[in-house]
Design a protein around this nucleic acid. Structure first.
Lengths: 319, 319
DNA sequence: TTAGTTATACTCATATTGAGCATTTAAATA
DNA sequence: TATTTAAATGCTCAATATGAGTATAACTAA
C-alpha cells in the first residue's frame, strides 16, 4: 500500500451479510475494539495486488474472517464522502467504501461476529406491529422542524419534497424500500448520532434524539442501502429463496418476506401469488406437527427463471 | 497522486451522459487520441484531496471538460476487474472505475465531444423496428454454441440459464433493462471486440463477429449499465422528464420513452397511463402546426411526487 | 372540397389485486 | 371419544389495471 502520504486512496469493502432466523432479518456484526461509536459491519481493505476483482476481494476476506461461504453477493454503492469516516482524520488517507450485500441461508456457520436484527438499528422501519410509534412521537416532528428552520426558501422546498417522498407524509404511502432516503434525511437533520459524531463545525445541533442503535464509520448508511436494495429486489427477483432452507412452508416464506419488508402481508393473497407465479413446487412432505393443520413443504422452482421475465414475490399488504 | 508504484489505486470517474434528440437517446462521446480501441465516455480521475465526494468530483470535471451543467446524476456501479482496463498494463496502477449516469435536457450546450445514438454501440437493443435481425442471424447462434462448447456440465447449465434469462430465449420475453447481462454474456463469450482486445491468453477465440461499435477501456460495459439503469428507472421514477423540454406533447414524451426502452408502445394506452397517473398537466398551449391535428402541450406535474408512491411511466408494449 | 395525417376519446374483454368468508386437518383438552 | 383451538388451505367477489382495439376530431396540403 506504500507509505500513507496525503492523497492516498484506500478502498474499503464492507459487507451487509444478511440472514433470516426466526422470521427476523439479521445482519452480521463484528466487534471492533477500536470502533469509535457502535457496532460495525465486517469490512476489509481491497488489495490491489492480490484481488482480481472487488467482489473476489470481498469474498476472500469474508471467508477468512467469518468462515462463512456466502452465496449471493451484489454490489450496493460506493461512498466517498470525506468526513463520514473517522479513520480519515488522522491517517491522511482517503477512504472509499464499497458496500456489498451478501445473503446466507445458514446463520450457524459464522465463527466470528454476532447476528443482530437489523431493526435494532432502524426501529422506524419495522411496521409489522403497525406504524412505529417513534415516527409520530419523535422522528417526524424533528424532521418537520428541521425543514421549517431551513432559511433558504428553495432548499426548504427541496427538503420538504424529500421528506414527503421518503416518509410518505402527504401521500400516506410508506414505500418500504426507501430506507436510505429516510436515513440520509435523519443524518442531514442531525437526528442520528453518527451525524453528531461527524460534525466538525457546529452546524449540527444535537437534538438529544438519536433513534436506533448507532454504528461505526458510515456503516449504518451502508446497512440502509442494503436493506433498501433487498426490499426492492425481492419484488422483481427471487432473491428471497437465497435466505430460505431447501424446504419450507408457505407461511415460513411469508414470514421471511414480512421480516424483510417490515410489513404484514395478506396470507391468502400471498399464497396465491407465490403458487400461481410458479415460484414453488410441493415436495410431497409435510411440516413436522405443530398445533393446527400441518403445512405442506415446498421448494423453490428454479425453472421459473426461464419461464417468466419477473419471477418474484410481490407483496400484498394487509394483515 | 504520488509516484505510481505497484499497488497504487486510481479511482476513475466515468460519466454516461444521456440526452434525447429527435427521439433518439444519445450519449456524449469524447475523442481520445490515445484511446486504444474505439470511442470513450467522458472520464476523469477522482482527486482525493480536492473532491469532497465522488459525485462532486464527477460534476466538477464534467463542467470543466464539456461546459455541461448536468442536473440529474446517479451512481451506477464500481468496477474493479483487473485486465479490463488496458491502462493498467504499463502503469503498475490499479484502476477502479466508478460509473455515473447523468441526464441533460439540452444537448446543444456541450462544447466538447459528440452525441452519438447509444444504439450504435448496442444495435441488438433497438426493437423499435421489430426484433433486430442481428439477434437471430449472429448473436444467438454464437452464444448458443459458446454455451454448448462449455466442457464443465455445471458451468454449462449456469450459462444456459443466464442466456435464457438475458435474451428471453425460452420465455420469449425480452426484458429491456437487462442490457448489462446481455453485454456481459457477449463479452465472456468473446463476441465483442473488447473481449478479444483484453484477452492475454488465448482462452478467447475471436469469432470474427463483433456486433456494435466497440469502445475504449471498459466503457461499453459502463454504458450498458447506464442504459439498463435508465430503462429500469423510468418505470418507477419520473426520470424521463429530466430529458424533456419544459413543454412537450404526449407523443414527444412517448417517442422519448420508446427511444430509451428501444420498444414501440401502444399510443392510446400510453396516454392513458400518463394522464391518469397525474404525471402531466396541460399548459393550455398547442404545438406549432404540423400536418394533422395539433397536439396539446403538457408540462410535468411536479406535485405528483408527493401524491403517489411510484409516479412513473409504465411501458404499454405494442405498436 | 377532399384526401391525408395526427391527436384524442371511448369501448370491451381479460387479467390482476385487495379484501374477506368458508372449509379442512391437525393437536390439545375435556 | 367429543370438543375446542390453531393453523393451513380453498373460494368468492368487487375494484382496478391492462391490452388491444374502433371511432371521432382537428388540423394541413392538394
Amino acid at each position: 500500500m506504500g507509505t500513507p502520504d496525503h492523497g492516498d486512496i484506500v478502498v474499503g469493502l464492507n459487507a451487509v451479510i444478511v440472514t433470516v432466523t426466526n422470521e427476523e432479518p439479521r445482519v452480521l456484526i463484528v466487534q471492533e475494539p477500536d470502533a469509535p461509536s457502535g457496532d460495525v459491519l465486517p469490512f476489509g481493505l481491497f488489495d490491489p495486488i492480490k484481488d482480481r476483482t472487488l467482489e473476489e476481494g470481498l469474498r476472500s476476506w469474508v471467508v477468512q474472517q467469518t468462515d462463512l461461504e456466502v452465496g449471493y453477493v451484489e454490489q450496493l454503492y460506493t461512498f466517498g464522502n470525506s468526513g463520514r469516516d473517522p479513520r480519515e482524520r488522522n491517517s491522511g488517507q482517503r477512504f472509499i467504501s464499497v458496500g456489498y450485500l451478501a445473503l446466507v441461508r445458514d446463520a450457524a456457520t459464522a465463527t466470528r461476529g454476532t447476528w443482530r436484527s437489523w431493526y435494532e438499528y432502524f426501529p422506524w422501519e419495522d411496521w409489522r406491529e403497525g406504524r412505529p410509534g417513534i415516527l409520530d412521537a419523535e422522528i417526524l416532528p424533528a424532521l418537520g422542524s428541521w425543514v421549517e428552520d431551513t432559511p433558504d426558501a428553495y432548499l426548504r422546498a427541496v427538503r420538504e419534497e424529500r421528506l414527503a417522498l421518503a416518509f410518505g407524509v402527504e401521500s400516506g404511502a410508506w414505500t418500504e424500500d426507501h430506507v436510505l432516503d429516510r436515513f440520509e434525511l435523519l443524518y442531514e437533520a442531525g437526528i442520528v448520532s453518527e451525524a453528531v459524531r461527524d460534525a466538525r463545525n457546529d452546524d449540527v445541533t444535537a437534538p438529544g434524539l438519536t433513534p436506533g442503535k448507532p454504528m461505526g464509520f458510515d456503516h449504518r448508511r451502508i446497512l440502509a442501502t442494503g436493506m433498501g436494495r433487498l426490499r426492492g429486489k425481492i419484488q422483481y427477483r427471487p432473491v428471497i429463496f437465497e435466505l430460505m432452507p431447501a424446504e419450507f412452508t408457505l407461511f415460513q416464506l411469508q414470514c421471511a418476506a414480512e421480516g424483510l419488508a417490515g410489513l404484514r402481508l395478506h396470507k391468502q393473497n400471498f399464497r396465491r401469488l407465490v403458487e400461481r407465479g410458479g415460484l414453488v413446487e410441493e415436495t410431497g412432505r409435510m411440516e413436522a406437527s405443530r398445533p393446527g393443520r400441518p403445512a405442506k413443504l415446498f421448494r423453490f422452482r428454479r425453472n421459473v427463471l426461464r419461464e417468466r421475465p419477473t419471477p418474484a414475490v410481490t407483496l400484498p399488504r394487509g394483515g
